[in-house]
Design a binder for these strands. Structure first.
Length: 510
RNA sequence: GCGGGCGUAGCUCAGGGGUAGAGCAUCACCUUGCCAAGGUGAGGGUCGUGAGUUCGAAUCUCAUCGCCCGCUCCA
């Protein structure tokens, strides 16, 4: 574990030192669990997304892309179940360690007062028997009135504090009511925390006139609400898929472990619509497709494993994760879920619109079933980065090398002149100016050749082109390989072809 | 949320009441010219932030923010 801890630490500092990932707003001491991608991180992240997009959208005739808005109609989240499932103010009792819904505790306290009133009424009934007028008693008895007033006051406070999201107010109410934990019997309460996974904001700039809307907690719903739009305009027939890459936001209680769990993160999701009854076939298909996508990167296969869900979410009839061996152990990298027709049916119900497909093959209308593949871009980034960063023992020293899959590397080629004179820099720039149309290249002429190689090793550049004196004579250069450290001499005119063969996405997709 | 550890230069860290340090990195010049760490010089830190104690705080105290780990939570 110590080893693992050190691994994550060294990844974090390497990521910062070379401009992959910075703590966000660092000059203001940072913002919890928020990170910015630096100059190299942005390249790597873009390449990861490009690999996914190419493989999912452009390599499949029956999958198309989508880019839906982060803001969605609030009813979307009612339909998806997110509003109800994650909207509770919770409070913990420090002694019993039990967690309660704050509003339920208060309501129970109100209920107790109600019972007091009922007792009072029962007492009155006993006393006056037949002459008892309950309505009048309730309207006049001082004890009852006092308790009714108390309830009204509590209810007002509860409505006000919960409505304003005034969690301290909710806690004060619990303290004032002297509510005790049913288990421990103590009043040793934590703060009240709003366990709503969704971030909310207001649409419309006029206060009071504004509607609360949410930042999407998953990109999937943008696909579901556009299901018919896409299907009708694309002429796609079931089975077909809609893929999307985009930001999602979850107000996690504990966001941690570097970029593994952030409150703002990016997802790559694909929803595959199938005929009901055929979902398990496609579920298995996508399980094998997705693991293939990962394994094509050349990361050791032992770094991956499937984890089948035993307890299924309310919407799923089968689900598994692809787990990756991160520095902190095997954790979820991608989820593959058979979501049934739950989402589309929910949206039909809440919108009143039919979200069905007419299947000409069987001459039937139905709500399609859905297989979802959902992978976190940031997690994929961490997976690639952590599995690539190595310290290698050489004969007389060590080198830090980031053995990124060439197609994902920020720079594909570093072009460098052996010396800063004799026209070598000019020649090197000439080569770079041709290559840069097809490959992200970097130029470096400072320090010794060895040192420059090491610098490129540290940022994962797979190839270095060295321009030397022989270049001026016969238009050949050497290509130095990051992983083997070996060099080969090739003609300048062959460079583009060689790098295409070795660095393009095609190498991963074949 | 609880418990533990930590915060000093871009990175790794030393220092521990009396004017801010090292290695690497960066920049300039020289040297060398195919696997880093040759020479000379330079830049860079109000020691996470804020209060307090003190003649004096990076150092002691408190609070706060942030990071890492474990538990918890989430799925």
């Amino acid at each position: 574990m110590q080893q693992k801890e050190d691994n994550l630490k060294s990844i974090i500092s390497h990521a910062k030192e070379y401009g992959f990932v910075f703590p966000s707003s660092e000059i203001y001491d940072g913002l919890a669990a928020t990170y910015d991608y630096g100059q190299l991180g942005a390249e790597l992240k873009n390449n990861i997304k490009a690999y996914w997009w190419k493989s999912m959208v452009q390599m499949h005739e029956n999958i198309v892309g989508l880019d839906s808005a982060i803001f969605m109609h609030p009813t979307t989240w009612k339909a998806s179940g997110h509003v109800d499932a994650f909207n509770d103010p919770l409070i913990d009792n420090k002694d019993s360690k039990k967690r309660y819904r704050a509003d339920v505790l208060i309501e129970e306290a109100i209920e107790k007062i109600r019972q007091k009133i009922d007792k009072e009424v029962a007492k009155g009934l006993k006393r006056f028997e037949d002459a008892f007028n309950e309505a009048e008693f309730r309207a006049t008895n001082p004890n009852v009135l006092r308790n009714v007033e108390k309830i009204t006051e509590i209810e007002n406070r509860m409505r006000e504090t919960l409505g304003n999201n005034d969690l301290d107010g909710v806690r004060n109410l619990i303290i004032d009511l002297e509510i005790v934990c049913p288990v421990s019997g103590t009043k040793n309460w934590t703060e009240v925390r709003q366990f709503n996974l969704m971030f909310s904001t207001e649409l419309g700039s006029v206060a009071g006139d504004a509607a609360t809307i949410y930042l999407r907690p998953e990109t999937a719903q943008g696909i579901f609400v556009n299901f018919l739009n896409v299907q009708k305009t694309s002429r796609l027939k079931i089975p077909f898929g809609i893929a999307q890459i985009g930001k999602a936001f979850r107000n996690e209680i504990v966001a941690r472990q570097f970029i593994f769990r952030m409150r703002e993160f990016e997802q790559m999701e694909m929803q595959f619509f199938v005929r009901p009854g055929e979902e398990m076939k496609w579920y298995d298909y996508w399980k094998s497709e997705r693991i293939k996508w990962h394994k094509a990167l050349g990361i050791p296969e032992t770094s991956y494993r499937f984890h089948d869900h035993i307890k299924l979410a309310h919407y799923a009839n089968a689900a598994c994760d692809i787990e990756f061996d991160f520095p902190m152990g095997f954790k979820e990298l991608e989820g593959i879920h058979s979501r049934t027709d739950y989402d589309l049916k929910q949206h039909e119900e809440h919108s009143g619109k039919k979200l069905q497909y007419f299947d000409p093959e069987i001459n039937e209308n139905y709500v399609p079933y859905v297989i979802e593949t959902s992978i976190g871009v940031d997690r994929m980034f961490l997976a690639v980065l952590s599995s690539s960063l190595k310290e290698e023992q050489l004969e007389n020293d060590t080198r830090v090398v980031l053995s990124l899959p060439a197609a994902l590397a920020p720079y594909k080629v570093a072009v460098m002149p052996l010396t800063k004179k004799d026209g070598l820099p000019e020649k090197a720039r000439e080569i770079l100016n041709v290559l840069k149309f097809d490959f992200n290249c970097v130029y470096d002429e400072k320090d010794s050749a060895g040192k420059r190689y090491r610098r490129q090793d540290a940022i994962g550049t797979p190839y270095c082109v060295m321009v030397d004196h022989q270049t001026l004579e016969d238009n050949t250069v050497t290509i130095r390989d990051r992983d083997t450290m070996e060099q080969e001499r090739v003609a300048i005119e062959d460079l583009a072809g060689i790098f295409t063969d070795r660095c393009s996405m095609k190498t991963l997709l074949m």
